[in-house]
């Protein structure tokens, strides 16, 4: 169960090797979390991630999960929930894709969409249903500012996040009164090995800062969290810029 400050005792991360996901797990383990499930495509990296969290004192288990195989989600994730309550699910899987390449390779672009959007729709619905039966729990969805307004430089990724974000908003409304909180997290550029070498945008942040914002959002029972918080007013201004102006911005 979550405590009075919204800190979960058990955590399921979908995308078990995600930098942001693991930074969040480390932070929550230091507070209360004892049981962690890392769901992801089996790999040495997944096992290493589990071992690292074990050294922090958590009981960690891994479970094979592939966002691109929605047919398996109900069974695979359902099994996790039969082993005990999950207080928080962190939907952390996602791929950036390679915009320049993917524009010329539609199947690759579709993979981005299928991972980030349809994969999340499937896994999100499965988890929300299980949380609803529990009568409590948080589904934390890692969206992105990129979904807020499509940009020339990453609109394939951005559109997939826009879909995910809209889906999560609606899901949150559907969950009102069920005891389930859906929290949308919209980070800006997060410095991590995955984004190394990519051009940083202003207001860049770190996985640890995202983790801290998630902890705060849990405590406040927020519906939306921007990281850093300054992105909220910035994006709300950008959203209303006329397109010709927006196109010329260096963001």
């Amino acid at each position: 169960m979550k405590d009075a400050f919204g800190i979960p005792q058990s955590l399921l991360i979908l995308g078990g090797t995600s930098e942001i996901g693991l930074a969040t797990a480390r932070r929550l383990i230091a507070r209360r979390t004892r049981t962690v499930w890392l769901a992801g495509r089996p790999s040495p990296a997944l096992d290493t991630a589990a071992d690292r969290l074990r050294t922090l004192g958590a009981e960690v288990r891994t479970v094979p999960f592939d966002a691109l195989d929605p047919g398996s989600h109900a069974e695979v994730l359902g099994k996790v929930f039969t082993e005990g309550d999950i207080d928080m699910v962190l939907l952390a899987f996602g791929i950036l894709g390679d915009q320049a390449h993917d524009e010329a390779d539609p199947p690759a672009a579709v993979r981005v969409a299928q991972t980030n959007y349809t994969g999340a729709v499937s896994a999100g619905l499965v988890c929300a249903g299980a949380l609803q039966i529990q009568g409590h729990g948080s589904l934390v969805v890692l969206s992105s500012v990129a979904g807020e307004r499509a940009r020339r430089t990453d609109f394939i990724y951005g559109s997939s996040k826009a879909g995910l974000d809209a889906f999560a908003q609606g899901l949150g409304d559907a969950m009102l009164g069920t005891g389930v909180q859906v929290m949308i997290v919209r980070p800006g550029f997060v410095r991590s090995p995955r984004t190394a070498g990519r051009p940083e945008t202003p207001l860049a942040t770190t996985p640890e800062a995202v983790a801290a914002a998630i902890e705060l959002g849990l405590r406040r029972r927020s519906e939306t969290v921007w990281v850093p918080g300054a992105l909220r007013p910035v994006m709300s201004a950008l959203r209303h810029l006329p397109r010709p102006v927006f196109r010329r911005l260096p963001v």
Binding site: K2, D3, A4, G135, H136, G177, G179
Partner: peptide, 16 residues
């Protein structure tokens, strides 16, 4: 009949 409940401190609501 499903309602969200907390204790007097109004923290950690759950539905039952």
């Amino acid at each position: 009949p499903y309602v969200s409940l907390t204790g007097w401190g109004r923290t950690a609501p759950t539905t039952a």
